[in-house]
Structures are given as structure tokens and as C-alpha cells.
Simulated assay, not measured.
Amino acid sequence: MRAHIERYVVARDNAGLLGCAGIEQYGSVGLLRGLAVAQRARSAGLGELLISTIVADVRQRGVESIVLRTTSASAYFARLGFAPITTSEMPRALLPLTEFPPGNTAEGIVMQTAL
């Protein structure tokens, strides 16, 4: 995994950590590893800012789509342009990764967006 880590973005203020997001690159596919925003910073657009910062960076590195798995934020990511995908739609570069169970199961929904 360490060889694929491309970018982590962290937002802070004087009181500490506000949010972070991370992405790994597998050829032309980005795998969003995480997005977290502190409770005190939610509803201010910080999550969207973190995602857009990462997207701008990986787009320049040749990433053409981003995939993620979520257990609780599918509606949020849908608003950002992500759509659920099935195992048959999974980019080949991600198929060897063990965190993607077959289909959209209770372990989460797999989503993708084209850049």
C-alpha cells in the first residue's frame, strides 16, 4: 500500500486538526482512502474542499477516475458526483485489493466518479 500513497491533505486551525483526506493511485485510478472532518468544522464545505484539492492534484498525475467505499456517506458522495458501481464495473487496477467485497454488501457501497 505504501507504494501507492500519493496524497494526503490535512486542514488545521489554531485549535488543531479540522479534517483530512487521502488517496492512493493505481495507474489511472485513484482510490480515496479516507475523508474525515471534525464535528466543529462540518457543514462549512471543508470536506468538499479537501476532495477538490486531492482531485486537482491527482488529475495532473494522470488519474481519470476515483473510486471509494463508504458505509455511511453515499448520499454525501453522490452530491459530489460519485455513483454506485458493481463488481463488474470495478476498474481492473483495483480488483486485487482485498477491501472490495463482491457487490455492494453490508460492508459498504463502492462508488466512482470520472474526472
Rank of each mutant, 00 (worst) to 15 (best):
27 G>Q: 11
67 V>D: 05
82 F>I: 00
26 Y>Q: 00
26 Y>A: 01
87 T>S: 15
79 R>G: 07
32 L>H: 08
79 R>P: 02
46 L>Q: 03
11 A>F: 13
91 P>F: 12
47 G>T: 02
69 R>M: 12
76 Y>F: 15
63 V>N: 04
30 G>H: 05
29 V>F: 08
92 R>L: 10
44 A>G: 13
53 T>L: 07
91 P>V: 09
14 N>H: 14
56 A>T: 08
19 G>F: 14
72 S>P: 01
61 R>Q: 14
77 F>D: 00
43 S>E: 12
45 G>A: 11
60 Q>F: 04
18 L>V: 08
27 G>K: 04
93 A>H: 07
41 A>P: 06
46 L>K: 03
80 L>D: 03
60 Q>Y: 03
12 R>Q: 06
33 R>A: 05
74 S>T: 02
21 A>Q: 00
52 S>C: 11
84 P>W: 10
52 S>H: 15
90 M>H: 10
92 R>Q: 14
17 L>W: 15
21 A>S: 09
25 Q>G: 04
93 A>K: 03
35 L>C: 08
46 L>E: 04
91 P>T: 09
28 S>A: 15
91 P>K: 04
18 L>A: 10
28 S>W: 10
72 S>W: 11
80 L>H: 06
24 E>A: 15
15 A>Y: 12
74 S>P: 00
27 G>R: 04
46 L>R: 02
12 R>W: 13
39 Q>M: 11
82 F>R: 00
50 L>V: 08
28 S>N: 14
36 A>V: 14
22 G>A: 14
81 G>Y: 08
84 P>F: 11
